[in-house]
Every structure is written in C-alpha cells, then in structure tokens.
Computed example of a mutant assay.
Amino acid sequence: MQRIECHLTAMQECAEHIWHIQLTPEQAVTFRPGQYLQVVMGEKDKRPFSIANSPTRPGLELQIGATPGNPYPGEVMERLRTTGQLTVELPLGKAWFREESSRPVLLIAGGTGYSYARSILQYLIDTGFNRPVYLYWGVRQESQLYEGQEVLAWADEYAHLHYVPVVQYPEPGWRGSQGMVHEAVLADFASLDQYDIYVAGRFEMAAVIRQSLHLRGVSDEQLFGDAYQFI
C-alpha cells in the first residue's frame, strides 16, 4: 500500500452538496478499477472514498457527498479548502473489476456510489469492451444524477453499454424508472445467474441488494462490493 501526498487540482460542486475533486499525487499511483483510497486525517482516523477515475487516466478523482452537519466528509472538504492537499493511502478494497471474466457486467450504484461504477466504466471505455454492461444508478431526486448526461452520451456511443437511472422520489414529468434501484433491476432481469454484479452505496442498501439477489439465485462468487467485507 502506498501513502502519498496529493495536491488539489480542482473542486466543483456537481450537484447540491456533491463535490467532484481532482487530485494530483506527488508520485505515480497504482490501483485497479473499482478500488478505493483512505484519506489520512490522523493515524487513527482514516476515511475511505471510492476512486472515481480509471487507472488509465491521470491523477486521482473523488466524488464526495458532504451534506451540512455531517463531519465525516465535511472535515475532509474543509482540509482541502484550507490546505489544498490530502494525504491518502491506496489501493484498498477487493471489489475491483474482474477483467478476466467473460460474463456480462451489472453495476448497481446508489448516490455517490456511482463514483465506484465510474472508475469501472472509464476503464472499459479506455481498454475496449465487447460484453454487455448495464448500469443502474439509484438516487432520491433526479438532480442527484450529477453525471447522468455523460453516461447517456457513453450509452449512445457504445452499443454494449446500457444505462438505467432510477429515481426514488420523482418530480412530475419523470419518465424513467421509479422506486428503489434493486427493485428496478429485479423487474428488468428474469435471471441474473450469468452476470458479474458490482454494488456500491450505503451499507444498508448493499445489504438489501445482497439479500434480494440471493433469493434470485445469485451466488457470492458473482457479487462484488466493498461493503460486503464489513456487513
């Protein structure tokens, strides 16, 4: 594992209370698509965040949801604003993209868990892919699909990529999928036993998805998500 100093290159609020962070490491970094890093706030205070870019692209990117009153991400954002740098440790996580598999790929993301899926999607685009890939991105409100237009453009360009945004509380006029993201997946797929399934989001969401997929005959060998190392 590497411990590296990173300098802030760019910080942009891409949706309300969701920030896209670009970091420039002081030395070369090595990681696999779908892995995460830890921000070192102190030796006993290390905070994990998914790496939001593919290792085929320069630097490190994060997508941080920092709502007011939540110190866990808020203190990381404050350190970035005041010092312009972070100390990080990487690579971490066992839910990286299984490149050697030939199965179709199903990515299930909740909220800023999309950053995990984004790393895998960029890697697939940069290295070429010919197996079907499905992204289901679940959010509470449509405004939280902060990079939805980019994903739509990718889906238009790459015939093997299919994108389904799922909004839990849609506004009038929303014509896409509604409700919980895993329910949309189960409604669309009669069988999932031939898929590699990657999951990122809140632990509670990941637990519900695992239980629902087990009932559909999905084995743990097909299911990848860093949450499953802890729950």
Results as ranks from 00 to 15, higher is better:
residue 103 R to N: 15
residue 228 Y to R: 12
residue 23 L to K: 05
residue 150 E to R: 11
residue 107 L to W: 07
residue 113 G to Q: 08
residue 97 F to R: 08
residue 177 S to A: 15
residue 153 A to E: 14
residue 110 G to I: 10
residue 138 G to M: 09
residue 170 P to R: 09
residue 136 Y to C: 01
residue 223 L to N: 08
residue 119 S to G: 07
residue 27 Q to E: 09
residue 171 E to N: 13
residue 115 S to I: 06
residue 174 W to H: 11
residue 221 E to R: 11
residue 155 A to Q: 07
residue 113 G to F: 08
residue 138 G to C: 08
residue 190 A to G: 14
residue 37 L to H: 07
residue 196 D to M: 11
residue 68 P to G: 06
residue 58 P to Q: 10
residue 178 Q to Y: 07
residue 168 Q to S: 15
residue 96 W to L: 12
residue 221 E to G: 06
residue 2 Q to E: 15
residue 218 V to A: 05
residue 121 L to Q: 05
residue 202 R to M: 01
residue 159 A to C: 02
residue 147 E to K: 11
residue 182 H to E: 03
residue 74 G to Y: 01
residue 10 A to Y: 09
residue 147 E to M: 08
residue 212 S to G: 00
residue 94 K to S: 11
residue 4 I to G: 02
residue 230 F to I: 11
residue 54 S to V: 14
residue 98 R to K: 13
residue 68 P to C: 10
residue 179 G to S: 01
residue 182 H to F: 09
residue 21 I to Q: 03
residue 25 P to I: 13
residue 184 A to F: 05
residue 5 E to M: 10
residue 85 Q to E: 09
residue 203 F to C: 00
residue 95 A to W: 08
residue 52 A to E: 03
residue 104 P to L: 12
residue 81 R to H: 05
residue 56 T to I: 07
residue 219 S to H: 14
residue 63 Q to Y: 03
residue 63 Q to F: 01
residue 53 N to Y: 04
residue 18 I to A: 04
residue 41 M to H: 11
residue 98 R to Q: 11
residue 14 C to A: 14
residue 139 V to D: 08
residue 94 K to L: 10
residue 109 A to M: 00
residue 123 Y to F: 15
residue 103 R to K: 15
residue 4 I to M: 06
residue 23 L to S: 06
residue 150 E to D: 06
residue 73 P to C: 09
residue 226 D to H: 13
residue 4 I to P: 02
residue 143 S to K: 15
residue 36 Y to G: 05
residue 29 V to P: 03
residue 116 Y to F: 15
residue 65 G to A: 13
residue 125 I to V: 13
residue 9 T to M: 07
residue 11 M to H: 03
residue 98 R to S: 08
residue 85 Q to G: 12
residue 85 Q to R: 11
residue 195 Y to T: 08
residue 3 R to K: 09
residue 188 D to I: 01
residue 152 L to K: 10
residue 120 I to D: 07
residue 44 K to G: 11
